[in-house]
Amino acid sequence: MIAALLVMIVLALLLGLVLGYSALRFKVEGDPLVDKIDAILPQTQCGQCGYPGCKPYATAIASGEADINQCPPGGEPGMRALADLLGVEPKPLNAEHGEPKPKSTAVIDENLCIGCTLCIQACPVDAILGAAKHMHTVIASECTGCELCVAPCPVDCISMVPIPEKVSNWKWRYPVIELKQVA
């Protein structure tokens, strides 16, 4: 009986030593995973996921707090990339957080804008320029299409315009194989 106790105590001590040492030796600082997740997120900073930006959402995913299907701008491919990175099952996007929309940019109707700067303060990427009492303009190439500027505008002069397809941004389509001849 005593022998058994002794054996278990010795075992526990040994393992405790080894593990205690390695806990110090292999201590992990920070969470490199957050950056990897953040790199996948589309950086629209739109907050549709329920977090105040992409980075906070990435942190929430890394800590297991948020699910991977809360990012409509990233859409299905983004969700798949996250599932791939984290080794979890892909799941359909959560409709609570909105539907994926075609990529758009905000456009300010220059004739209506009163220059209140509310949209400038709302823009997460400083893509709107202008000053108080002066009309504001969106820098199209920097707009992420997050729509955060739409709601604050007191005169509803901001609209989201889908980016039109041009020769310069045109993409080849997924081949469609007609199945009508099969039968």
């Binding site: 953040d38 997120l41 589309p42 950086q43 629209t44 900073q45 930006g53 992409c54 980075k55 997460p124 990427v125 400083d126 893509a127 920097e142 992420t144």
Partner: peptide, 15 residues
């Protein structure tokens, strides 16, 4: 899109 996202991240962080 990735480039645009990187730019957006940078600008967001700057902001």
């Amino acid at each position: 899109a990735k480039q645009a996202a990187d730019l957006a991240r940078e600008r967001n962080e700057f902001r």
